[in-house]
């Protein structure tokens, strides 16, 4: 009886189990990828073909029309991509710093009102955003930050904070006290402990916050539209919406698909670059 689990553990590494693991993985992956592949194929279909009944699976004739229209220099795509990049990267930087600090505060210290304050922070996750935008615009205007990319960046940061502070609080509070105490005893300053000991330990949390903040600010539409009024300051989702949705809400499916593909690229890149931090043993080693 006692040997059974051991042998089953050994079994897990045997080819038979591995085959099922692969099969499951491939089936699941197809489910996730089929919609994306269909979309990618559609970017090479003409407008007429996309309206055809019954629809075609593979493009009947390859056309780059959608790509050309999207990258038409007069379309302002480059400018809006730059704007989006500035706002998103700025949001990521600000969010990571502010939420790491706050996570440290909430996770490592106990002070009067910390529970209530944390709940106020979480409340940011729970308010319908559409109506709040109107007063938000008024506040930003009062600060002289309406129609300003930095203003948008601040707004984005504030609405990523609830989730990111939650993550960071969890990360910091999970660090055993002994580590901190030992370091302090070794003569580390508190800042030193924070920078040299804690930060490496909470890397997975920082990575999650960064990815989350980037994706949300990269794809956000409504706040950017309400808060920005100059065409040159518009972000990518606004420009895409202008191009993709025409009279009466007619969707230009080819441009829609192409736009999605284009906006996915930086997100995937970021994820790809950062995901290794999730599984690197960096922290299980250090925490021991």
């Amino acid at each position: 009886m006692k040997t059974e689990p051991l042998s089953s553990r050994r079994l897990r590494r045997k080819p038979f189990v591995s085959v099922w693991w692969w099969v499951t993985g491939i089936v699941l992956s197809s489910l996730f990828l089929i919609p994306l592949v269909t979309m990618l194929l559609s970017t090479f279909k003409s407008r007429t073909e996309l309206g055809m009944k019954p629809p075609t699976l593979l493009p009947r004739e390859l056309t780059l029309d959608n790509w050309q229209r999207l990258f038409d220099p007069s379309a302002g795509l480059i400018q809006s991509t730059m704007n989006s990049a500035i706002v998103s990267l700025g949001t990521v930087a600000l969010t990571v710093v502010v939420s790491a600090l706050a996570g440290y505060g909430f996770g490592r210290f106990r002070f009067r009102g910390s529970g209530v304050l944390f709940f106020v922070v979480l409340a940011g996750l729970m308010v319908p955003f559409t109506v709040l935008l109107t007063p938000l615009l008024v506040v930003l205007r009062g600060m002289g930050l309406s129609n300003n990319l930095f203003g948008v960046m601040l707004v984005y940061t504030v609405y990523q904070l609830p989730f990111c502070i939650f993550i960071m609080r969890n990360a910091f509070s999970g660090i055993p006290n002994e580590i901190e105490e030992a370091a302090l005893m070794d003569g580390c300053t508190r800042v030193g402990v924070f920078r040299r000991i804690f930060i490496p330990l909470v890397i997975p949390g920082i990575v999650t916050s960064a990815i989350f903040a980037f994706l949300n600010s990269w794809n956000e539409f409504l706040a950017a539209l309400v808060l920005l009024t100059d065409q040159e300051k518009f972000t990518l989702p606004i420009m895409l919406a202008v191009r993709q949705v025409g009279k009466f809400g007619t969707v230009d499916w080819g441009l829609l698909d192409t736009g999605i593909v284009v906006s996915m690229i930086p997100c995937l890149l970021i994820f790809f670059l950062l995901q290794r931090y999730y599984v690197s043993g960096i922290f299980s080693g250090a925490a021991k």
Binding site: V97, L101, A102, G105, F109, F111, S114, L117, L154, R190
Partner: peptide
């Protein structure tokens, strides 16, 4: 605890101005 309060203050400031006030 003042260290904790200090380190959450940037977050609280931002949240106050751009969430609580609106």
């Amino acid at each position: 605890s003042w260290i904790g309060v200090a380190s959450i203050s940037p977050a609280i400031l931002l949240i106050t101005v751009l969430f609580v006030v609106p």
